[in-house]
């Protein structure tokens, strides 16, 4: 249908599950020095590796390190100041790693807060997801502090800033706030009315969603907007079935063999998640040509090191037999999602 991605796909290729799992387990241990550019996003790396192992039904590979990983994640929690909790009431949540210089505090004991130390919404989202996937009971999570900080991170226009210093803000962080609220089962940190208006203003003329009003629609932002509405339980309130069909149309048009992220761009395995996940939430994933998609995804596997040329959780959507079923809206296995839902606070 377009010029991109028209290569012949070998549908007979096999999925090398164990090699992908070893790849993730290796990433969890050490990373080469060139990865220092990801130093302020380490929590997201833990998330990709742990959640990836879960979807590959291979958590057994890191069973001996389970407690250590959980401790490390908890050590990244920014807690209210011991003597004056109001001092950093807007800065709680999880940090990306230890780069700010905080003392290692896995037991989450009250301490004096550090200067310029702040949780980051993407890290709170990924930290809680890692804990859920590893079967933790959230007993060391300061839910109240997280909710209070989230309230401060949302502006009157509905947008969410990533950190207490209020620099970056876009749909990514609203989505993170939604997953955090979903996982800790407390929505008092999100003003849904302004969040919904914020999302609606990002819908474009072709039915997709963009990072800001007037910008080009993009599969990543489309997922974030649709998933946020779904998690807020607002999707069917905001968009009629006919309007949802417009979003579905744009998503379905993304399939060439794999999916593209925007019209006229090349196929890319990561969009199998962004587009596939959106379609799953909209109840339209059955409309995808899975044979074609699976063939494309398998062709992106690295047979030497393991790993796809993008992200392997994309295969969970295709129903690969070796991959656990996915709860697309929070990008977690259904197994882990059910565990999180069963927690009592």
């Amino acid at each position: 249908m377009s010029d991109s991605g028209s290569a012949t796909i070998d549908t007979q290729e096999t999925f090398i599950r164990q090699r992908h799992a070893k790849y993730f387990a290796m990433c969890l241990k050490v990373l080469p020095r060139s990865m220092a550019t990801l130093d302020t996003q380490r929590m997201t790396l833990v998330y990709f590796a742990v959640s990836g192992l879960d979807l590959l039904n291979s958590l057994a590979l890191i069973e001996s390190r389970r407690a250590a990983i959980i401790d490390w994640v908890y050590a990244m929690q920014v807690l209210p100041d011991k003597d004056n909790p109001g001092l950093n009431a807007q800065a709680c949540g999880f940090r990306p790693g230890s780069s700010v210089g905080a003392p290692y505090n896995p037991k989450c004991e009250a301490q004096a807060c550090l200067k310029h130390d702040s949780g980051h919404l993407a890290m709170s989202f990924t930290a809680l997801s890692v804990l859920a996937v590893l079967g933790d009971d959230f007993s060391r999570v300061n839910r109240q502090a997280i909710v209070q900080s989230m309230r401060a991170l949302q502006s009157d226009s509905g947008e969410f800033f990533a950190t207490a210093d209020k620099n970056e803000s876009d749909v990514r962080f609203l989505y993170c706030a939604c997953v955090v609220s979903h996982l800790i089962k407390d929505w008092s940190g999100v003003n849904k009315a302004t969040a919904v208006a914020y999302i609606k203003s990002r819908q474009t003329y072709d039915g997709s969603f963009a990072a800001a009003p007037g910008l080009e629609g993009h599969a990543g932002y489309t997922f974030l907007c649709v998933a946020s509405l779904y998690l807020m339980d607002q999707l069917d309130e905001v968009y009629t079935k006919v309007e949802q069909d417009r979003i579905i149309r744009w998503c379905i048009m993304r399939q060439q063999t794999g999916f593209t992220g925007r019209p006229g761009k090349l196929v890319d395995s990561c969009y199998s998640f962004w587009v596939g996940g959106t379609l799953k939430i909209l109840g339209a994933y059955d409309l995808v040509d899975r044979t074609c998609l699976r063939g494309f995804l398998l062709s992106t596997q690295s047979t030497t090191t393991g790993g796809l040329a993008k992200s392997p959780d994309t295969l969970a959507g295709v129903g690969e037999p070796d991959v656990l079923p996915l709860d697309a809206a929070i990008n977690m296995s259904e197994r882990a999602s059910q565990h999180a839902a069963s927690l009592k606070f």
Partner: peptide
């Protein structure tokens, strides 16, 4: 200088170059 404290069993430990660690 203030070293980062990654605990006894760090996860996704980046093998920082000495220069990088020094600056940080």
């Amino acid at each position: 200088p203030l070293e980062q404290d990654d605990g006894p069993d760090p996860v996704v430990a980046i093998l920082y170059a000495d220069e990088f660690k020094d600056k940080m």
